Structures are given as structure tokens and as C-alpha cells.
Simulated scan of single mutants.
Amino acid sequence: MGSSKLFISFLVIQAIFISSSLTQAAPSNLFREYIGAEFNNVRFKDVPINPDVEFHFILSFGIDYTTSSSPSPTNGKFNVFWDSDNLSPSQVSSIKKKNPNVKVALSLGGDSVGNGYAYFNPSSIDSWVQNAVSSLTEIINEYNLDGIDIDYEHFSTDPETFAECIGQVLTILKRNGIISFASIAPFDDDQVQSHYMALWRKYGKLIDYVNFQFYAYDKGTSVSQFLRYFQTQSSNYRGGKIIASFSTDGSGGLSPNEGFFTACSKLKSRGNLHGIFIWSADDSMGNGFRYEKQSQALLTSNQ
């Protein structure tokens, strides 16, 4: 009788393990798109939304700089720098009401502000965190947002300070129920990676998605190169959901015309496709959002 119970317990544990493994390996239907950075009048409703995907719009950008003609750092006091005329609080509410599968986030930092780079430039950890929590909570509540994305690309401080500032803000915003998800958007640059990997090592458990900028690799990237890059970043951000990406501005990386969707199909067949994101809706208007449709079709296919 004892051995029979032991055998049954073993079968139950084995079934749970197999079920868990299958769940972890299952590809995601997550589609994410940056929007609003280029002020070309793109609206949420312009972008095709497949009802079978989990769809995240990411407003670009919230930046802790002044909104004057010569922007300067504000030590964590964030301001809206996206096209808020076309992407307003009422439009956020409208697109979410019409599409229950849509969530909206804001991205912090970005590459530039005014005519210069947008630097991560805190006066101190404590003051930056306090200002960031206060200003971001206000923006998130006003716009009815669901999450944030960290996309600082230039730094005036060391990786440990960056990790503490961002990690503490994520901790507080999640603990207070202000956001339900967070992502980071690194790319393959030594300084960038040193900062984001320091954040990942200490606060990775708070980061739901890694929006790795694969389009920052050289233009003309091949399918095999892309898959190697994906494996490398999966190792760097071990345990993270690395999101495959391309740009519609033709800047670099593996383009849709050169095999991006072939690479994604290979990742999906291996259970490694955690989602797709595009930079950006602003650039996609010119081609009628052709690749947004194709991306979402691949994510929802049964292959």
C-alpha cells in the first residue's frame, strides 16, 4: 500500500512538472508597438488590432527634462514628450474600451530630447526616486496607463545608481498597484548593457519583458545572425522574456523583407517566441501598417 501511494505521488509530481514545462515553453501572443515620438499625427485607432493578441501600445516618451525650448534635466520629474494631441487621455480610454485586449504603457527616456541626447542624470538616488514616483503616478493616473518601459540610452551615472533608481521606482509603483507590468529596452552597446544588466541582476524579478532593440544591430542582419543574437541576449537576461523586434524606419537589424518572420517562426517552433514589438507606429503609417498585421497573424497562427 505504501509503495502504491509513493508511485501515485510520483506520477502526480511528474504530471505537474510536465504541465509546468509545457506552460513555460508555450509561445506568447504578445504584440507591442511604440507610438507618438515623431508627431506625425498617428492615432491608436489607425493601428490594426487583432483581437486574439495581447496588444501593448507604448507611448514614447516620458522624459525627466523640462519642456522648454532648451530642455534640461529635472531629476526625476517626468513630463509628457509624445504627441499628446493625438494620443490623449480620452483616446487612451477609448481604445481600451473598444479593444479589451489592449493595454497602454509609457516609455521613459528615449534617445533624444530637443536637439540633444536624453541623459539619465539623477542628483541622488533618494531624490530621483521620490520625484519619479510622484510625477509618474500622476501621469499614469491621468492617462489611465497600465505599465512602464525603461528606454534610457545615455547615462551620466554609474550602472549601480541606475539600477537602484529604476529598481526602487518599479518596486514602489508595482507595490502600490500603479502599474501591472514593466519592461526594459536595452541594445547591444557596452555602456547600455552594463547599466541594464546591473538592473537585471538586482531587480530582474520586477521586469516582465525585455524589449531588446534587435534593430540596433547592423542593417542587413541575416536570419542566422538574428537567431544567434537572440540566444546571446537570452543568456544575458537569463530567465527573461526576450521580445523579438524590428523597425519600420529601415534603420537596421533584420527587416521583414529579409527574413524577420522566418526567424520568428523558428523561435516559435522552439517555444522561444515571447512576443514581437515594432519601432514604430509613426513610421508604419506610410506602408499601411502592413507589418503590424503580419506580426499579429504570425503570433496567432497555429504553426
Rank of each mutant, 00 (worst) to 15 (best):
Y65D: 01
S251R: 08
E138L: 14
G177I: 04
N86F: 12
S68G: 10
Q191P: 00
F81D: 05
G147H: 06
L199G: 07
P159I: 02
R175S: 15
S234L: 06
F78V: 11
V80M: 01
R201Q: 13
E142K: 14
S19W: 14
V133A: 12
E138T: 15
F277R: 11
S194I: 08
S183L: 09
S60W: 00
I35A: 06
R201W: 05
L298H: 01
C165Q: 08
S112Y: 05
V129K: 11
N115Q: 12
S123D: 12
F277Q: 03
T248N: 07
E292S: 15
E38G: 02
R238C: 04
P186Q: 09
S68K: 10
N287I: 09
Y196R: 10
P159N: 01
S269R: 13
H274M: 10
N144D: 13
D149H: 09
S19F: 13
Y229I: 06
S20A: 11
V169I: 13
V223I: 13
Q91G: 03
N41C: 08
P48G: 02
L145R: 13
F44D: 11
K98M: 11
C264V: 03
D46K: 06
G177E: 12
K98C: 05
K205G: 05
A185F: 12
I172R: 09
G253M: 01
A281W: 10
Y117S: 08
N176E: 15
P27R: 04
K77T: 13
N115G: 05
S124C: 08
M1N: 14
A263E: 00
K268D: 06
K268M: 14
V104I: 15
P48H: 06
S112P: 07
V129C: 09
V104T: 15
N40W: 03
A263D: 01
S112G: 05
G271F: 10
K241P: 00
E292K: 04
S19Q: 04
I179R: 12
F55T: 10
P71T: 00
I35N: 03
S28Y: 11
P51G: 13
G252P: 00
V113M: 07
S60T: 11
H195F: 05
M197A: 14
Q303H: 07
T171Q: 10
K174S: 02
V80W: 05
T248Q: 12
I243Q: 04
D146W: 04
V47L: 08
I95V: 15
N41W: 06
H154T: 02
D126E: 14
H195I: 02
W128L: 07
V102S: 11
C165I: 08
Q191N: 12
G286P: 08
Q24H: 04
P256K: 05
F260I: 03
N131W: 10
S123L: 12
A263Q: 02
V12G: 00
D111E: 13
F230A: 05
L173M: 12
I18M: 07
A163I: 12
D83N: 08
S9E: 13
S69E: 10
I166M: 14
R32L: 12
M1S: 14
F55N: 09
A26V: 06
N141C: 02
L59W: 08
G167P: 13
Q296S: 11
D283Y: 15
S194C: 04
